Simulated assay, not measured.
Amino acid sequence: MDLLKLLFWNCRGAGNKTFKHNLVEILRSHKPEILILMETKITFSKMGNFFTRLGFTASTIVDPIGRVGGIWLLWDTTQVNVRASSVGPQVIHATVHKEDYEEWVLAAVYASPNPLLRANLWNELEEVADSMDKPWLVAGDFNDFANQSEQRSYSANQSSTQPQKFLERINNCNLMDLGSSGPRMTWTNNRQGLANTMERLDRALCNEDWRTMFLKSS
């Protein structure tokens, strides 16, 4: 049975030559059937032909508002079937089917940096979790971190309750963290010296059914 490959990339801006070159190289190396891009900063209409040439002929799109946010879910229809069931500014829910696999649900997330709006996202995810009867993968940029080891900052304004609330939300949805390899921190403010902050904001979560279905996932 062929392994189903997904690629999540918080690209922090799509459309420039560097993005296009890097994406082509990533696709050549990893050959994903499903591609999820977050924080695109431009509208999909400016890039549609580019993705079609790469073999991603179907898509469900949440464009950024101005240059804030954006979730692009694209897939190769010759390899996998994807049906979007709900689309919002912070999450796209879709059912995924590939030959030899049972159907499962993908939630592609780009959570708002605004805590109040981010709470709305988690309220929605908890409602979905209450009725979820399929394997479920929830992945993307959560704009939050789970413990103090996932943040490196010299700022004195660090909340000790923020990670606890994030973990409570994950537990309320009956999700587990799939872990990661490579650099522990996935985001930086790109400032120098004492002004620099680094955090792990990107992660993949899943329910027990999805973990059992994809034991070799990473």
Rank of each mutant, 00 (worst) to 15 (best):
V128Y: 11
R152H: 13
L121P: 01
D76G: 06
S59L: 00
M132A: 12
Y110H: 09
M132E: 08
A108P: 08
N49Q: 13
K46S: 14
L54Y: 08
H97L: 13
M47W: 06
N143A: 10
S112N: 14
D133S: 15
F51S: 03
Q90F: 02
Q148C: 14
A94Q: 10
N114T: 11
G88F: 00
P115N: 12
S45Y: 05
R118N: 10
D100G: 04
V82M: 04
S59D: 06
P64H: 09
W104P: 01
V82N: 00
D63R: 02
H93F: 10
G66F: 07
G88W: 00
W136Y: 11
V128R: 09
N81M: 12
V82D: 03
M132W: 00
N143G: 04
I65S: 14
L73G: 01
T52D: 11
S112V: 05
A107K: 06
G70A: 05
F44I: 04
Q151F: 06
S85H: 10
M47I: 11
A108D: 04
P113R: 07
S45N: 14
P115E: 03
S45W: 05
T60N: 07
T57I: 07
F142K: 03
Y101S: 08
D144Y: 01
L117S: 00
T78I: 08
Y101F: 15
W75T: 01
S59W: 13
N143E: 12
N120L: 14
V109Y: 01
R53W: 06
H93C: 06
Y154I: 02
E124L: 13
V109W: 00
I71T: 07
L116E: 09
F145G: 02
K134S: 10
I65V: 15
H97M: 09
E124A: 12
A108I: 06
V82Q: 01
N81E: 14
H97D: 05
D141K: 04
D76W: 07
N147D: 15
A146M: 15
N143T: 10
